[in-house]
Simulated assay, not measured.
Amino acid sequence: MTTEAPPATPAAIDAVPLRHPWRWVAAAVIVVLVGLFLYGVATNDAYRWNIYGEYLFNERVLKVGVLNTLQLTVYSMVLAIVLGVVLAVMRLSPNPVFRWVSWVYLWIFRGTPIYVQLVFWGLLPTIYKNVQLGVPFGPSFFHLDLQALSIFFLLAILGLALNEAAYMAEIIRAGITSVPEGQTEASIALGMSWLMTMRRTVLPQAMRVIIPPTGNEVISMLKTTSLVTAVPFTLDLYGITSREIAARIFEPVPLLLVAATWYLVITSVLMVGQYYLERYFSRGASRKLTTKQLEALAKAQMGEPHP
């Protein structure tokens, strides 16, 4: 009786990683070009880096310009999100009147430039000098002189929010419609009300679709606040640096760099917040296993008991 010899162990594969020399060449060229650009910027007297350093942490720039820009961004976005939810629900409503009103609103505010809209809101006290409430052809109970009020900050918020609401409505509508209808049907079958279904089933899943474009809109809103000079409101970051201080010292370039620096700093902070919000609402949606899950899977395959 003969026994078969065990099969020979296959030879190990000597894997050699593929080399990419042109990647290093391209990287070296880019580094040289960036270095030359930075050297030219640093040595160019037109940038006036001494004035840039002097006004970068200027008290008026920080306490008036940056603060007003943040207020414009936050107030306008909160109002835009609230109005966007209402418009999105109206677009999804079976009532044709609601659907048409919402569609006309989106058509007007998405079809006209934001700068033109802000100019219109700035002219509102001129168009409607007085606001009166009362009985037609009778006594007046309320009278308001718009030209006597300084409401340009409120008009700037209103102009930005009404324009942004048209875009937020489509983002929210897309997020709600991305949730399968079976989720809603299952929630209703479990006895949930429509409000509870939206709050506990639809919206948590829709947020994965809503958060990324909403974060982009917040960043876009921050930069769009530089257009409120059309209202005219000139106490934002761009107005303080490029119109007030630069016009006084006749140095527009370093003051533009100051404004750009603070816009970049605030945008970076917003991007970090957007990253953590996206990660929070994407829990359970990714099929990528965590380190603990991979360790548990490896132990299960080796037959080890899992604690």
Rank of each mutant, 00 (worst) to 15 (best):
157 I>R: 04
296 A>W: 00
287 R>N: 10
189 A>V: 08
35 G>Y: 00
65 G>S: 08
43 T>L: 09
158 L>Q: 01
143 H>N: 14
59 E>Q: 11
244 E>S: 14
248 R>S: 15
259 A>V: 02
211 I>P: 01
290 T>G: 06
6 P>N: 13
123 L>N: 12
133 L>N: 09
172 I>D: 00
218 V>T: 07
77 M>E: 06
112 T>R: 07
60 R>I: 01
150 S>W: 00
253 V>D: 02
140 S>Y: 05
52 Y>T: 13
163 N>V: 13
295 E>K: 09
257 L>G: 05
181 E>C: 15
280 Y>V: 09
125 P>G: 05
212 P>C: 04
303 G>S: 04
276 Y>V: 11
261 T>H: 01
39 Y>R: 15
46 A>Y: 05
265 V>M: 12
53 G>P: 05
179 V>L: 06
54 E>A: 14
14 D>P: 12
299 K>S: 12
71 Q>W: 05
8 A>K: 13
297 L>I: 10
167 Y>M: 13
4 E>T: 15
215 G>S: 06
15 A>R: 10
136 P>R: 03
56 L>A: 02
9 T>Q: 11
102 S>W: 05
27 A>E: 10
12 A>T: 12
114 I>S: 10
194 W>V: 08
98 F>N: 13
264 L>D: 08
111 G>F: 06
162 L>F: 03
53 G>C: 06
282 S>I: 07
149 L>F: 00
202 V>G: 08
260 A>F: 03
198 M>A: 15
115 Y>D: 07
176 I>P: 01
114 I>H: 04
133 L>C: 06
173 R>C: 03
34 V>W: 01
278 E>P: 08
274 Q>T: 11
208 R>F: 05
92 L>D: 05
38 L>N: 04
70 L>A: 11
281 F>K: 07
187 S>F: 07
90 M>D: 00
47 Y>G: 04
299 K>A: 09
189 A>Y: 02
85 V>H: 01
197 T>K: 02
207 M>A: 10
80 A>N: 01
245 I>S: 07
158 L>W: 00
222 L>H: 07
246 A>H: 01
5 A>F: 04
20 H>V: 14
15 A>L: 13
125 P>S: 05
165 A>P: 05
278 E>T: 10
181 E>T: 15
173 R>P: 02
